[in-house]
């Protein structure tokens, strides 16, 4: 079994993370009041990911855990992305028109659509 040194976080670290999370909350609320078009969601998600990373890394102590546990955390996120990306790919491309065989529109071939 691996050596078990319990890593006890410093109070200062925890409080700093807390302060950062509060600041990021204020920041994301403030940024949302501007109009950046599609970028609003990107910024909001980036901030959310940062906040979540802070919680995972410090509060949940992932900075001290084994590679295996980290691998599991990453796997969960990768699978979430697989689900969202492949599903979204359907919706994104569903209405793409495609060029039918050129002769299909050519009256010379006696075929019409």
């Amino acid at each position: 079994m691996s050596a078990h040194e319990v890593a006890i976080p410093k109070v200062k670290t925890l409080v700093l993370v807390w302060a950062a999370l509060i600041c990021f909350t204020a920041l994301t609320t403030w940024v949302a009041s501007f109009e950046f078009g599609e970028w609003n969601i990107v910024i909001a998600l980036l901030i959310a990911v940062t906040k979540a990373s802070l919680v995972v890394w410090i509060f949940m102590g992932v900075r001290h855990v084994t590679t295996l546990t980290r691998l599991f955390v990453v796997a969960g996120l990768v699978w979430l992305f697989i689900m969202i990306l492949l599903t979204a790919s359907d919706y994104k491309t569903r209405n793409w028109t495609y060029q039918a065989q050129p002769w299909a529109n050519n009256p010379a071939h006696g075929l019409s659509r």
């Binding site: 909350t25 909001a44 998600l45 979540a52």
Partner: peptide, 12 residues
């Protein structure tokens, strides 16, 4: 942390 921006902030 994800619900807050998605439901309350974006697209407003």
């Amino acid at each position: 942390i994800f619900l807050f921006p998605l439901l309350y902030l974006i697209g407003h």
